[in-house]
Computed example of a mutant assay.
Amino acid sequence: MAELTAWLLMILVVLTFTVVSSIDDKCAACNAVAEEIENGLSNEKPRNHLDMRHRLDSKGQRKGKVIDYRVSELRVVELLDGLCDKMQDYTLQKVDSKRYEWVRVDSWDNLAINKQEAKAYSKDISSYCGRLLEETEDELAERIKKGSVKVGDVSKILCQDLSKHCNMSSDSHQADADDDEPDGEL
């Protein structure tokens, strides 16, 4: 009996996980999360260095480090903290008969689609964001601290390099297509 209960519990956990990870187009969802991170990067205000010299030595001189804000853990926390809550402002919108994209909702009252369905989508992308950050946060934080994450590069770094939810970008496909063409030289 205990064995049957364990199996049923395991099946229930697998089914729950399958339902929770129900974002169909992970690349589009990842790009929406990357867009929100880019908004955070572009809205950053210049900050002073972090003065961590709080101790005094025997001569009364301050001891400790001065840390550049751009490479600090504080910057990473401020960029990523509350990110998934912000994703609840997004919903899935139909672009054409076969394509959907994630869009930021300015006013939930002015939606042309079913509000209940739109809210469900917003919860889906918010939980997807949590899973995405859980998988990639350490490496993303290191790249932010190194300064390799800049406005315009977040989608490539997060969605292609770290999470692998997107294949090569269209720019990369174009570069590959250009390489296949003859150079015109004999």
Rank of each mutant, 00 (worst) to 15 (best):
M1Q: 05
A2E: 07
E3S: 13
E3R: 14
T5I: 09
A6N: 08
L8A: 09
L8R: 12
L9N: 15
M10C: 14
L12P: 07
V13L: 10
V19K: 04
V19I: 04
S22F: 11
I23N: 00
D24Q: 15
D24L: 15
D25C: 00
C27Q: 12
C30W: 04
A32Y: 07
A32Q: 06
V33H: 04
A34D: 12
E35I: 13
I37F: 02
N39R: 14
N39W: 04
G40S: 15
L41E: 07
N43F: 06
N43I: 02
N43L: 05
E44S: 14
K45Q: 05
K45N: 04
P46C: 01
H49T: 08
H49D: 09
L50P: 03
R53T: 02
R53D: 03
R53A: 02
R55P: 01
L56W: 08
K59P: 03
K59Y: 02
K63T: 11
K63I: 12
K65Y: 10
D68S: 06
V71L: 02
V71R: 07
S72W: 14
S72D: 15
E73Y: 05
R75F: 01
E78F: 13
E78I: 10
D81F: 06
G82Q: 10
L83G: 00
L83V: 00
D85Q: 07
M87T: 00
T91C: 03
K94C: 13
K94H: 08
V95P: 14
V95Y: 07
D96K: 04
S97V: 11
K98Y: 15
R99F: 11
V103S: 03
V103H: 11
R104N: 09
W108G: 03
D109E: 11
N110R: 12
N110V: 05
N110A: 08
L111Y: 08
A112I: 13
I113E: 06
I113Y: 08
K115G: 08
Q116H: 11
Q116T: 11
E117P: 04
A118Y: 04
K119Q: 10
A120F: 12
A120H: 09
S122T: 05
K123R: 09
D124V: 00
S127T: 05
Y128Q: 06
G130K: 03
G130S: 14
R131N: 12
L133N: 02
T136I: 14
T136G: 02
E137Q: 12
E137V: 15
A141Y: 07
K145H: 14
K146P: 01
S148M: 08
V149Y: 00
V149C: 00
K150N: 06
K150P: 06
V151M: 13
G152E: 07
I157G: 12
L158W: 04
C159M: 06
L162S: 04
S163V: 03
S163K: 07
M168D: 13
S169E: 14
S170Y: 10
D171L: 11
D171V: 13
D171C: 10
S172Y: 15
S172V: 14
A175V: 07
A177C: 15
A177F: 09
D179F: 07
D179K: 09
D179R: 12
D180E: 15
E185D: 02
